[in-house]
Design a binder for these strands. Sequence first.
DNA 1: GCCAACGTTGGC
DNA 2: GCCAACGTTGGC
Length: 163
Amino acid sequence: MIGDITGNRRTPAMAYWLFKTEPDTYSIDDLRQEQRCGWEGIRNYQARNRLRDEVKKGDQVFIYHSSCKVPAIVGLAEVVRDAYPDPTQFDPEAPYYDPKSDPDAPRWLRVDVAYRRHFPHPVTLRDIKADPTLAGMELVNRSRLSIQHVDDDIASRLLKRLG
DNA sequence: GCCAACGTTGGC
DNA sequence: GCCAACGTTGGC
């Protein structure tokens, strides 16, 4: 099965995603240093639902730097743990604290990702917009969504360009 | 720093 | 459940 009427992915095959991060907060370099991290701070229901329903261990993740000088896809990571409650929602000290989240029914989730590599040739948002074969990406028309699906054919085209 | 696009909130 | 007001994101 390829999907259901909601568009949710059902196939067990590996999928590609694009996760956005602001490098001033957490960059691909930080991930390389840590090797593995919890992808915390997702506070948007659509993104949360994707983490819950579609993002699975083994999926590949393009790391995208946003809100910075040169927004670009800069590296690759891999999902190493399926979604589980994001502990930062219950931490009053954390920037992602959500006092309305009930510990018995956590509202927000995170997955764990592991560092894979930096790309020798980052693909900038400018590049993507300029390439008709890439311009259909969610990055262009649904830029606010922090967990984006990347089609297999687009993923392979990106991987070729990224080196 | 501006501002357009988008998501969330809350009064009705 | 609508929708105006408000808050946030993110490219430029």
